[in-house]
Structure formats: C-alpha cells, structure tokens
C-alpha cells in the first residue's frame, strides 16, 4: 500500500534573514524508510521541527495520512495523531526511571496508572526491543549516551507510531551500537509505518534506507536510491566540492 504518509508541499521557513527551508516539496510513503541527508544547515532538522509542530513555517502545507493538515496544530496533537520523533540531542527525563519513560511514551493521558498489566506488557516488550530491560529501574540521568539514544527511540516507538522520525540516531554511538541500531530500524519497518531518518553516517544510511532525499540550502537536490545518490555529480559537488 504505497499510500502517502507525509506530503510536504511548498514549505518555506525563515529565521531572520536565513532561509532555512525554501519552497520544499516532498512525499514520504507508508512502508518505506526514508533517509534525509545533506550538509549542515541544509534544513534537515528544521524540516522535522515543522512536521512535529515545533516550528511554524512561513508558508506551505504538511498533509498527514493524505488528508490531515498538520501545520498550525500543537505538538501534542500532532504526536497523538501518530507522528513521533526522536531528537538530535538525546532528550530524556533525567529524573525518571527507564520504565517510566516507556510507560509515558506508550500511553498518552494524565490519569491512567503506569502499572496496569496491559501497559506493563507493552513496556516489557519495548524494553526488550531497545535492550534496556536490565536497566528498567535506573534513572535516565545515569545512562550512557548510547543508552539514552536507545531509550529515546524506545519512548517514541512505544506508542506504535504511524510516522517515526529519527534525528541522527547513531550520532556518537560505537560501531557495535550503530550496527544494532541499524537492525532495529529495519525491524521497525512495517507496511503501515513511514520511517524518516536524518543522518550523516552514509554507511548507516545505505544499510537502512529505501530511498534517500538530499537537501541543500533548504531545497531538494536529489531523490533516489543510495547508489544513485553516490553517483550523482551535484551531490558529490555539494558534499565534497567546497
């Protein structure tokens, strides 16, 4: 079912005099893992910020699930609709335990208890997936950088999101951790889910991505498979030429 999960249409974002995203259009389908790459300042993180509702664009639309306009809605509403995102800098709650993170990620509500059996099962499942089961009661502040990255991934996937956005999931990880992250991302791929990964690690991108979008100065420079990206002279120029 190659239905469009996210349709970005004519998006522009300015910060003062800096044009972060310039009339960008992009379609991401369900069932694919899409990598978004590009040099620093290309607008990758800003794109994720717009989709998750943190940044309001100057103009343009973002359609979710083919029909729902999400520009202008609150971050929380967008998240509840099924769009979840891991931040570039690992963002966890230092004062909470690992288990609490996953429970918060799994269930959106102020009142329900964190230890109902159904929730417990789901939390255990996710903890196994991100290999933090033995750290379940540790405070997040005491985790290593890699474990924080994984905890955040676990937190965002606990709710079975339809769109999963990962901003530099392997930055600062060891080779072994990168390897495990790659297999995790492939394992998360499902026909009813779109996964968007922003990453600089080309080997990692090559391993996980079905398609690659290259951004440059807020515009799409190239879109296609990793092989063709590597062969494209314009991309090579942007990455190596300067």
């Amino acid at each position: 079912m190659a239905m469009t999960a996210l349709l970005v249409d004519g998006l522009s974002v300015r910060f003062g005099s800096f044009q972060a995203i310039d009339d960008l259009s992009l379609a991401i389908d369900y069932g694919e893992v899409r990598a978004v790459i590009g040099p620093n300042g290309a607008g990758k993180t800003t794109l994720l910020d717009v989709i998750s509702g943190i940044t309001r664009p100057k103009q343009g639309r973002v359609l979710f699930d083919g029909a729902h306009e999400i520009v202008g809605r609150s971050e929380a509403a967008i998240a509840r609709a099924g769009i979840r995102r891991k931040f570039q800098k690992p963002s966890v709650f230092e004062g909470l335990s690992v288990r609490q993170h996953i429970a918060i990620g799994a269930d959106v509500g102020f009142r329900s208890r964190l230890d109902t059996p159904a929730l417990e099962d789901r939390v255990g499942e996710v903890l196994e997936t991100v290999r933090l089961a033995d750290k379940a009661d540790a405070l997040a502040g005491a985790l290593s950088h890699g474990q924080k990255q994984w905890l955040e991934i676990g937190m965002v996937l606990a709710s079975e999101p339809k769109v999963l956005m990962l901003d530099e999931p392997v930055a600062g990880l060891t080779d072994e951790e990168t390897e495990r992250t790659a297999s995790l991302v492939r394992a998360l791929k499902r026909p009813d889910r779109a996964i968007v990964v922003v990453e600089h690690d080309m080997d990692f991108v090559e391993r996980i991505a079905d398609r690659v979008t290259v951004l440059h100065e807020g515009r799409t420079l190239f879109e296609g498979s990793m092989d063709r990206v590597r062969a494209d002279p314009a991309v090579v120029e942007v990455y190596l030429g300067r």
Partner: peptide, 17 residues
C-alpha cells in the same frame, strides 16, 4: 518531572503540558 526535565520532549510525545 518529565515536564521539568524536557518539556518539548513531553509535548512531542502527545501531552498537553
């Protein structure tokens, strides 16, 4: 506590902080 530690993170998990 989650709001205290990282409010944006909590909002993007679907909570109206």
């Amino acid at each position: 506590l989650a709001t205290r530690d990282d409010e944006t993170r909590l909002r993007t998990l679907g909570y109206e902080t």
